[in-house]
């Protein structure tokens, strides 16, 4: 009698329904933090999220305090952070992407060879390296010899963090190409170089581009390695041998100053939107330019 109940279609479909509801509930719960964070940032940051944020440098503590007392919005923006982030990211991209793509080609072509396995494991290790450690190392490598904190040092630190991600995504997207593509290119009398440059890399382009974008969005919000490399600057500075600021670094500075706390939310919102935007772009490129 009991056995028959557990085997009955009604019981089994009810159980299946309960399972489906649980799946929905848990996936909603997993999404909740993102929406709560977004809501919190919009609610607290919308007042400061205005054109001035993009056109003015960060205010001093005194300016902010006066505004706070009179109940106005804090004056100024994060222009010095935006330009700093732009400079540091550009340097990191110029270093990490070519190097990462070259290494990725090597790993995809020489899979299984001892040297390739070694490089691959080291790249994994590098990916797991705590970001503050990367920062301190770059401090020793770049900041001390140049005897100045600089955008260049920050760029090197972010490049080191991006490198393993670019290597891995290049390797994976090249490995997904059918081997017949390479054989067809070589069978037409192409040299190895022209087959890699004219057939394999273009065919894997969407994967390479997506990987690069995701790597950029990952390091965009990095703070720890920048603390010990770029130091921070109160003005806009385009000289890569001098200290600069960055958006996450400014957020850290705002956090440390009770008068500036109000600017945290708008800056964080901007950073989050930028990362979100890059991610959406990467996803749409991956699906649109997909090679059949």
């Amino acid at each position: 009698m009991k056995k028959a109940f557990f085997a009955s279609p009604a019981y089994r479909s009810a159980k299946s329904r309960a399972f489906f509801i649980a799946v929905c509930l848990f996936s909603t719960a997993a999404m909740a933090p993102l929406f709560l964070i977004l809501w919190e940032l919009v609610e607290k940051g919308h007042r400061q999220f205005r054109p001035e944020l993009f056109t003015h440098v960060a205010p001093t503590s005194m300016e902010a305090m006066l505004a706070r007392i009179s109940g106005e919005a804090i004056p100024g923006g994060i222009l010095n952070g935006l330009t700093g982030t732009l400079t540091v990211l550009t340097i990191a991209i110029l270093m990490a992407i070519p190097l990462g793509i070259w290494t990725g080609i090597y790993l995809a072509e020489k899979r299984g060879m001892l040297m390739a396995r070694l490089v691959s494991s080291l790249s994994d290790l590098l990916q797991g390296m705590p970001s503050i450690v990367v920062g301190v190392i770059v401090y020793v490598w770049v900041v001390r010899p140049m005897s100045s904190y600089s955008a260049l040092a920050g760029g090197v630190a972010l490049a080191v963090m991006m490198l393993p991600m670019v290597v891995r995504s290049t390797e994976e997207s090249l490995k997904m190409l059918p081997v017949s593509l390479k054989e067809a290119g070589l069978s037409l009398g192409g040299s190895y170089m022209s087959v890699v440059l004219r057939i394999l890399l273009p065919s894997a382009f969407s994967g390479l581009f997506t990987g690069a974008l995701l790597a950029i969005s990952r390091v965009m919000g990095e703070t720890a390695p920048l603390l010990v490399t770029i130091l921070g600057a109160a003005t806009v500075n385009w000289d890569i041998s001098r200290p600069v600021s960055s958006v996450p670094l400014l957020i850290w500075e705002f956090y440390n100053d009770p008068n500036l706390v109000g600017l945290i939310w708008a800056s964080s919102l901007l950073l989050l939107l930028a990362v979100l935007g890059i991610n959406i772009l990467a996803k749409s490129i991956a699906s649109k330019w997909k090679i059949q």
Binding site: P178, S180, L181, A184, G189, G190, V195, I199, P202
Partner: peptide, 22 residues
């Protein structure tokens, strides 16, 4: 298996050998 180069047009595929050989 037919393996036309996926990034190239029909025109480009026919000429691929010339491009690869410079």
């Amino acid at each position: 298996r037919p393996n036309p180069f996926p990034t190239m047009s029909i025109y480009g595929n026919v000429l691929a050998g010339y491009r690869l050989n410079n």
